[in-house]
Design a binder for these strands. Sequence first.
DNA 1: GTTATATTTCTGTCTAGGACAAATAACCAC
DNA 2: GTGGTTATTTGTCCTAGACAGAAATATAAC
Lengths: 297, 297
Amino acid sequence: MINIQQLSQELGIGIDTLRVWERRYGCPKPQRDRHGHRSYTEEQRQELGIVRKLQDLGERPGNIFALSPQQRQRLLEKRVTDRAPADDDLRQLALTLPIVELTIALRHRLSSSGLYDFIHKTAVPLLHLLGYGWVEGSISIAREHFISDLIESMLQAELRRQAVAEEAPHLLFLNLSGERHRLGLLMAAALFQLEGCRSRLIQEHLPLNEVAPLAKELAADAVALSFSGQYPELKAKKELVELRRKLPAQIKLIAGGSALKNKVYLPGILLCSDLHQIPDIRKHLFGAAQQGQKEQP
Amino acid sequence: MINIQQLSQELGIGIDTLRVWERRYGCPKPQRDRHGHRSYTEEQRQELGIVRKLQDLGERPGNIFALSPQQRQRLLEKRVTDRAPADDDLRQLALTLPIVELTIALRHRLSSSGLYDFIHKTAVPLLHLLGYGWVEGSISIAREHFISDLIESMLQAELRRQAVAEEAPHLLFLNLSGERHRLGLLMAAALFQLEGCRSRLIQEHLPLNEVAPLAKELAADAVALSFSGQYPELKAKKELVELRRKLPAQIKLIAGGSALKNKVYLPGILLCSDLHQIPDIRKHLFGAAQQGQKEQP
DNA sequence: GTTATATTTCTGTCTAGGACAAATAACCAC
DNA sequence: GTGGTTATTTGTCCTAGACAGAAATATAAC
């Protein structure tokens, strides 16, 4: 039994939105407490979690609520298995392995396969499985958060551990999409650093018009922004164009995130719709300079 | 010119609250755009920033809005200088030093004075100066965020760098106060680790009833929670008592944060109202075991 | 004087239902 | 297919009132 505010926070859906959904689709139909305030059950929370995930995958509310809860569940399972080919090993890791062993297994994977493969073959599919995957109902919130926190801290440690050459290009990574989706940016930063750049990541949310002065003061060679799927596409474009205008020409601008899936062309802005493009982007921007970077013992 | 949502996010004040303040105190009196929507100026943003900070320091809205903007500003300056004795060196660091040099200066302080002194003599007063200190109007948001981000990453690196003995007590640090105030918990974690504990920090927001199972699964020896000043005191107490009930007796419970400033006594719960108490708490909980911990090269 | 309990004031968050811009889909011409 | 219009969907804002829970103050008891 939770109130509307808690529900809103846990799901990342606005309070107004929850109320208007109830009005329009009749769907999150909460009980009322003795003061007439909405009171949601754990079951409703889970149901809305599925709705939220379908929405993230591009489905629209009108269509989602036209389905029954069972249909929604099936649809989500289908979408997830379509996108993240079910590696059974990873599946077991995500869903059932005790977290102490899971920690060890992840560290092992990182050290045996290297950062590049770790990101592409472990972190990305694992997070995908987590984000959309506890449809099966068996993962606790604590487990979900613990695992993403773990991956985040592993990546940050790697980012710090790698030494880069003094004269390497200096990239500034910024997150504009609220607090969520920090991991996408972090992975991009790690991959760029692997390509011989110096990545500097700022987690806190910055107003757009403070970005250009900061980049100048830091003498960055490029600024990289990430827009989550939630971010309205047009807004993202406008902001990018404006930032490009404010930024000196010698500072490059890189944009990524699922909000920019359509391969629109914006002058002077490099789109990175897939982490796999990073090596090419790096070459395109800074030429084929020193690729290998030393690692500290 | 920003809308109410942006203002709410940047200040950490709810939309409803902003509207009700306008209704009651007539104070954030925004212009309206052509649709009748509220539109705030940069100046108003700054003014409300001061209000917010006074509130954090314990002042109540009714009293704050009874003052003129100038009086508010003066009051805040007084409160800040009272609390953080103005170290001119640090002041210059926070307010005027170019951030590149600032980074170097901070790293230098850390390596020369050690983690303990760095936290107590640099990080705490610096953050205080930042959090309440850009009253002087001269610090940009970007600078504020950059510096706290920098300190956070330095502390996290230290946390990871320090090796602790296998058999050291295992502490689990959790943040219940939303996304802000991560730094207080991080500093506590670092200080406990310095006292020979193994600190594990989880940044993401967890529902209270998931805490006990997680602590059990991780075989933690203690759980440490932080409640920010915003957190209602009674709620914090209730939640602590409930958590204590759910947690096995052998897992200790430590609570900190400015929400618990009144030294109430709760059975089975250790209050840590000041970072300086940490060495004592550690001794009290786990005896005077191996104090020194090795550092990795 | 201190501690406990009741009363009052203050403050944030909830409610309803309407409005409407921005985002997206559907359509149509080229 | 590509570009531009129209229709629909969807999230966020609006007003203004209600009221619970927190904090401050007053009152009583030791």
